[in-house]
Amino acid sequence: MSSVTDRALGPPPVWRRLIGRQETAAFICLVALLVFFSLTADNFFSTRNFTNVLGQASLTLIAGIGCAVVFISGEVDISIGSLLATVALPLIVIMNDTNSLLLGVAGAMAVGLAVGVINGFLSAYLGINSLIVTLGMMFTLRGGVYLYTGQRAIADDAGLDSFIALSDGRLFDVLPYSAVIAIILLGVFVYVLRFRRFGRQIYAVGGNREVARLAGYDVRRVKFTCFVISSLLATCSGIILAARVGSAQHIAGLNFEFQVVAATVLGGVSLSGGIGSLGGMTLGVLILQFLSNGLRGLSLPTEWQLVITGAIIIAAVALDELKRRRAHGD
């Protein structure tokens, strides 16, 4: 009862609003992690290491934007890991043929777009459970890559400077270009989610599908577009990954989708839709990236990261569920 009267008196103070949010918890978690590894791991606390981690995190960050957008719209996309490996094929093959980065990227984007359209059509318009659709897509794409490559890497023979710069180039010799791309894309999508009607429609559709429909939104088109965005962003990650390994690898991006999902959920983006922010997702990505970086610094097996990530997914969803139940009072 007292809580009701509190609410009636006006909005809670800022600090209390912050405390209720998962982003705050994620932030505290990240700081604690940084302090812990700075004290225990060798060579952890340095500009070089931090910018390295940012560069490594850029893949997850870029794909994470798409993952968060799809989550906020109330759907799931776990085909992005396989997509990473898939888009590298047209990229490398076309570059080897034409010596043009632009054509290669265009080819990769076209494939990414097609996958996004298929995912979106099957989930949003035909209404098949998106987890099943993208799970099926995940295996179809991976199998397709195995088929095409014969489980051998296709090397980048063109060796274009602009392509190599994607992996080891640094802006002002400090920040890796991949991190720069991630930050720009992050900025664009923070703007879209906050300042474009389309962005608000994503939140509304995920928050309450029926209300969104009553407000005149085209629910299916919004969801469809989110799948396309997710695939295109994953394509960007795939291009950067291909540059980093200098080839199209059939095992590229294996389990990548689960890392992205874990980071996104960890950052407070709700699986049930309508809740979450790209800031939170970014915190989630950084936590996991620093975790694996730090574990390596402590010379612990990196498989711990997989175990911890799995546990985090379960814990984050369970907490989310608990919060929802509290709010609904049952």
Binding site: G207, N208, V211, L214, A215, G274
Partner: peptide
């Protein structure tokens, strides 16, 4: 028929 997560003002202009 309001979006719970939105502010009151945004809900007013939802359409």
């Amino acid at each position: 028929a309001l979006i719970n997560e939105f502010s009151v003002a945004e809900n007013i202009f939802l359409e």
